[in-house]
Design a protein around this nucleic acid. Structure first.
Length: 750
DNA sequence: AAGTTTCTACTTTTT
DNA sequence: GTAGAAACTT
C-alpha cells in the first residue's frame, strides 16, 4: 500500500490531515489542489476509518468528479460504494429525487436547461400578453436565475422598477408552468433543496448525520444558494473543507460570488487557513506574467506563486494583421514546435474569449491539415436533433412536460401547425390540465361522439354541455392530434419492455425522423451521425434496472457540461474558450484576440467588477501553460460582417517587457500592418514547401485524395500571392477550403 | 399547413 | 455571416 502522505509538501499535507473542523485552502493554479482533495478522501477512509458513504465532495464539473473518483479508487484499490462526488446540481437532483415526497415534487420530474427555460418563458409571455421585444426572454431568464441563486421565490422578490415588477410576474407564472410540467430548472435544483432543508428539519438532520465530512472544490464559484446548502449540511459538526482561488473566479454572471470566501471566514471563525503557493505546473516566466496580470487586481489576498522549474522560454506577443493571419500563425507555430519535438499536438491549446472566434482557427487548422478538437461551440446536447430526440424521451418519461411536447408535436411535420398548437396550449390552460391530459380528453370526447353516432362537424355540439371543454379544433387538426397521441401512448406502453436505446430506435423509426433529418446535405448527415452518437450514449444505460434507466439517462444528460465530453485519446490540439479551460493544463498555450473589446470584452467596459472578472479570465488562460505562452492580437478583425480596428488589450500592457521575446515591438497602440512578421514562421515550418509556381494548378473537376477527408473533387481553385487555394467537395464530408501547400492533396486519375 | 423569402439579433462565459 | 423567427405566398 502506498503512503498517502508521501510526496506532499507541508501545506498540502496539512490540508489533507486536518480533517476535523472547518478548513479553508487558498490554492493557486497548479498547486495540486485536486491532489489534496483526493488524498484527503483517501486519508479519511484509510487512516480515519471513515465509511466512504459519510463523505460528500462537491466539484464544479462532472468531469472533475469522475476524475476524482477514479483517482481515489486507485489510491485505495477498490470501488467506493456510497461516496458522494458530484456537482452541486447533480447531487441536489439525486437527493430531491429521493426526497420527492417531502419536497412536494413528482419524483419523475424532468430538468430544464437554458433552452427549455426560454421555451417555457415564451409560452408565459404569450399567456400574459407581453411583447417579446420589450420583455426579452433572455432577460427574463437572467432575472429568474439570479433570483433563484439568491434564494428568492417569486413572492420574495422585491421589484424596484416597473420592468422588474413585470419580470416578477413572469417569474411567478413561469414557476407555475414548471410545476404543472413536473419540471425543475437548474436554479430550482438548488433552491428547492434549500427550501426543503429549511422546511423539513428531519430531512436536513438525516443528511447532516449521514455526511460527516464535506468538501467543496472551486469554492470561489459558489453562489448564495450553494453556500447556504453547504453551511446547512455542515451543521454543528462543521467538518467542512473548502478549496478556493479567488483569482480564478470567473462565473459571476451566473451568480457566483467570491465573497463567499469572506463569508466562510466570518461564519467559521475557528477555521484553519492554508495557503498552497507552490506551483508544479508552469515555468517562472509564465508565473511572473500571471502575477503581473493579477497583482493589479484590488481586494485579493496576495499570493506569491513560486516554482522549482526554471525560467523557461520567454513569452511571445504577436500582432497579426487580421484573425486569419492570427490563426495561421498559431497553426504554423504548432507545426514548428511539434516538428522540433518540443511538444505534441495534444500538448497545445488555443484559447479565446468567445466561441465565435473559433471559426477562423478551425479554418486554419483545416487549411494546414492539422488535427484539432473543439470544445463547446455548438454543444452536443444543444444540437437541434439531439434536443428533439431528448424531448421525445422526456415526454415518454413524463407526459406532463409540455415544453418538450411543444417542441416535438410537429417535428417531423405531422400536420399540426402553429394555430393548432396555440389552441391546444390555451385549451389545456383553461381547463387547468397539462396538454397531454387535454389530448386524452380530446380522445375521450371523440370516442363518446363516435358511440353516440353524433355526426356534427367541429366542436359545436359539445359546447353546450361543458363550456370549458369546447373543443377548439377543426376535424383535420383533431385527427392529427389524435394520431400523435396514439403514437405517444404506444411508446409509453412499450417503454416497460424496452431499453433506452430501443425506445429511441422506435421513436426515430415511427416518426420517420431519419428521412426528415437526412436530407442529402452534409449537415443532414452530421445530424444523423449525432443521433447515432446519442444512441451509443443511451446504450450505456442498458445494464441499469429497467425502471431507472430512462430517469438516470435523462438526468445525467441534462447535467453534463462542455468539458465533460472532451475526447481524450486523439493526438490533436485543443480549441476552447477561456472559461472551459479552467482546470486544464497544456505545454503550449495560445491566447488569441488579446484586444480591447474582445479580452476584455466590450460588455465589461462600464462595470469595474466585470472588468476585474475579465482580468481573472486572462489569468486563468495564462496559468494553463506549462512551458510556452503566446499572446496574440490582430490589428484588424471582422466581427459579424463589419471590420473593427482594436487596440491591443490593456492586459498586455501589464506584462513586464523582460518576460517577452523580441522586446515587445507590437506592444502599445495599434501598429501599422506588418505582414512580414509572420512569414519567417512559415519558412521554418516543417510543412512541405509551397507548391512551386511552375506546377500545374489543380483544375476544377480534378479528383484528389486528402489524408483526413479521403477522396474528393476540386470545385473551385484560385491562386493567391504565393499559394493556391482550393475548394474541394468530399462526399459525405462536405466542402472544405484548403491550401494546396499544406493539404498535401494527392491527385487521382480519371 | 407548409414552403418560401426576408429580417433580425446575435456573440460573453454555463451548471 | 448565420441561425432562427417572422412575414409572406401557395
Amino acid at each position: 500500500m502506498t503512503n498517502i502522505l508521501a510526496d506532499l509538501n507541508p501545506a498540502q499535507r496539512e490540508a489533507v490531515t486536518t480533517v476535523h473542523g472547518p478548513v479553508l485552502v487558498l490554492a493557486g493554479p497548479g498547486s495540486g489542489k485536486t491532489r489534496v482533495l483526493t488524498q484527503r478522501v483517501a486519508y479519511l477512509v484509510r487512516e480515519c476509518d471513515v465509511q466512504p458513504y459519510r463523505v460528500m465532495a462537491v466539484t464544479f464539473t462532472n468531469k472533475a468528479a469522475s476524475e476524482m473518483r477514479t483517482r481515489i479508487e486507485r489510491l485505495l484499490g477498490g470501488q467506493l460504494r456510497g461516496l458522494t462526488i458530484g456537482t452541486f446540481h447533480a447531487t441536489c437532483a439525486r437527493i430531491l429525487r429521493r426526497e420527492a415526497a417531502e419536497a412536494g415534487i413528482n419524483p419523475g420530474y424532468v430538468i430544464y436547461d437554458g433552452d427549455d427555460q426560454l421555451r417555457a418563458l415564451r409560452q408565459v409571455l404569450k399567456d400574459l400578453n407581453l411583447d417579446e421585444k420589450r420583455y426579452r426572454p433572455r432577460a427574463m431568464r437572467a432575472f429568474i436565475s439570479r433570483a433563484k441563486c439568491d434564494l428568492l421565490t417569486p413572492q420574495a422578490v422585491e421589484p424596484k422598477t416597473h420592468p422588474e415588477e413585470v419580470a416578477r410576474r413572469v417569474y411567478e407564472r413561469y414557476q407555475a408552468l414548471l410545476e404543472a410540467n413536473d419540471a425543475l430548472d437548474f436554479g430550482d435544483l438548488l433552491l428547492r433543496m434549500v427550501l426543503l432543508f429549511e422546511k423539513e428539519s428531519g430531512v436536513l438532520e438525516k443528511y447532516q448525520s449521514r455526511y460527516l465530512f464535506l468538501m467543496v472544490d472551486e469554492f470561489q464559484d459558489t453562489n448564495t444558494a450553494q453556500y447556504r446548502l453547504v453551511k446547512m449540511l455542515a451543521g454543528e459538526r462543521r467538518n467542512l473543507c473548502v478549496v478556493a482561488d479567488e483569482d480564478q473566479s470567473i462565473y459571476r454572471f451566473r451568480g457566483a460570488d467570491y465573497r463567499n470566501i469572506r463569508r466562510f471566514r466570518e461564519d467559521f471563525p475557528e477555521h484553519k487557513l492554508l495557503l498552497l503557493e507552490r506551483n508544479y505546473r508552469s515555468t517562472q516566466t509564465i508565473l511572473d506574467a500571471a502575477n503581473a496580470i493579477i497583482a493589479v487586481s484590488p481586494w485579493r489576498t496576495p499570493k506569491r506563486l513560486h516554482t522549482d522549474k526554471g525560467a523557461g522560454p520567454l513569452l511571445t506577443v504577436f500582432e497579426a494583421y487580421n484573425e486569419g493571419e492570427e490563426a495561421s500563425y498559431v497553426v504554423n507555430e504548432i507545426a514548428r514546435l511539434t516538428a522540433q519535438g518540443r511538444t505534441t499536438l495534444g500538448g497545445c491549446a488555443v484559447m479565446y474569449r468567445t466561441n465565435a472566434q473559433s471559426r477562423a482557427l478551425e479554418d486554419a487548422f483545416i487549411f494546414g491539415n492539422m488535427p484539432y478538437k473543439l470544445v463547446g461551440a455548438t454543444r452536443f446536447y444543444a444540437r437541434r436533433e439531439i434536443r428533439d430526440a431528448l424531448a421525445y424521451l422526456r415526454l415518454i418519461h413524463n407526459p406532463h412536460d409540455s415544453v418538450s411536447l411543444g417542441r416535438i408535436i410537429n417535428v417531423p411535420r405531422r400536420g399540426i401547425g402553429a394555430r393548432t398548437t396555440a389552441a391546444l396550449a390555451q385549451w389545456a390552460n383553461r381547463m387547468g390540465v397539462s396538454q397531454h391530459e387535454a389530448l386524452l380528453m380530446l380522445r375521450e370526447e371523440h370516442g363518446k361522439k363516435g358511440r353516440e353516432g353524433n355526426e356534427d362537424t367541429g366542436g359545436a355540439a359539445c359546447a353546450g354541455r361543458q363550456a370549458a371543454s369546447a373543443i377548439p379544433f377543426g376535424t383535420r387538426a383533431r385527427k392529427q392530434l389524435l394520431i400523435f397521441l396514439e403514437s405517444l401512448e404506444g411508446w409509453r406502453e412499450a417503454r416497460a419492455d424496452l431499453t433506452v436505446a430501443q425506445i429511441l430506435d422506435q421513436v426515430l423509426e415511427e416518426t420517420a425522423y431519419e428521412g426528415w433529418i437526412r436530407d442529402g446535405t452534409e449537415q443532414g448527415e452530421d445530424r444523423w451521425a449525432n443521433l447515432m452518437e446519442l444512441r451509443t450514449v443511451a446504450a450505456d444505460y442498458d445494464p441499469l434496472p429497467q425502471e431507472t434507466a430512462l430517469t438516470t439517462f435523462l438526468e445525467e444528460v441534462a447535467l453534463v457540461s462542455e468539458v465533460d465530453d472532451l475526447p481524450e485519446a486523439a493526438d490533436a490540439s485543443t480549441l476552447l474558450t477561456l472559461h472551459s479551460a479552467k482546470g486544464l493544463e497544456f505545454d503550449v498555450v495560445f491566447i488569441v484576440g488579446m484586444e480591447e473589446g474582445i479580452l476584455p470584452h466590450s460588455r465589461s467596459f462600464d462595470d469595474p467588477e466585470q472588468m476585474e472578472e475579465e482580468r481573472r479570465l486572462c489569468y486563468v488562460g495564462i496559468t494553463r501553460a506549462r512551458e510556452r505562452l503566446y499572446l496574440l492580437h490582430a490589428f484588424r478583425r471582422s466581427r459579424y460582417g463589419a471590420d473593427d480596428l482594436n487596440a491591443p488589450s490593456r492586459f498586455l500592457v501589464d506584462i513586464p517587457r523582460r518576460l517577452v521575446q523580441g522586446k515587445g515591438k507590437s506592444q502599445g497602440l495599434a501598429a501599422p500592418r506588418r505582414t512580414a512578421t509572420w512569414r519567417p514562421a512559415l519558412k521554418v515550418s516543417p510543412a512541405p514547401s509551397p507548391t512551386p509556381r511552375s506546377e500545374p494548378q489543380l483544375a476544377i473537376g480534378q479528383r484528389v485524395r486528402h489524408a483526413l477527408f479521403g477522396e474528393g473533387t476540386v470545385i473551385e481553385s484560385k491562386l493567391t500571392k504565393d499559394d493556391e487555394e482550393v475548394k474541394v467537395a468530399f462526399p459525405g464530408k462536405g466542402i472544405k477550403k484548403l491550401l494546396a501547400s499544406f493539404a498535401k492533396l494527392q491527385k487521382l486519375g480519371d
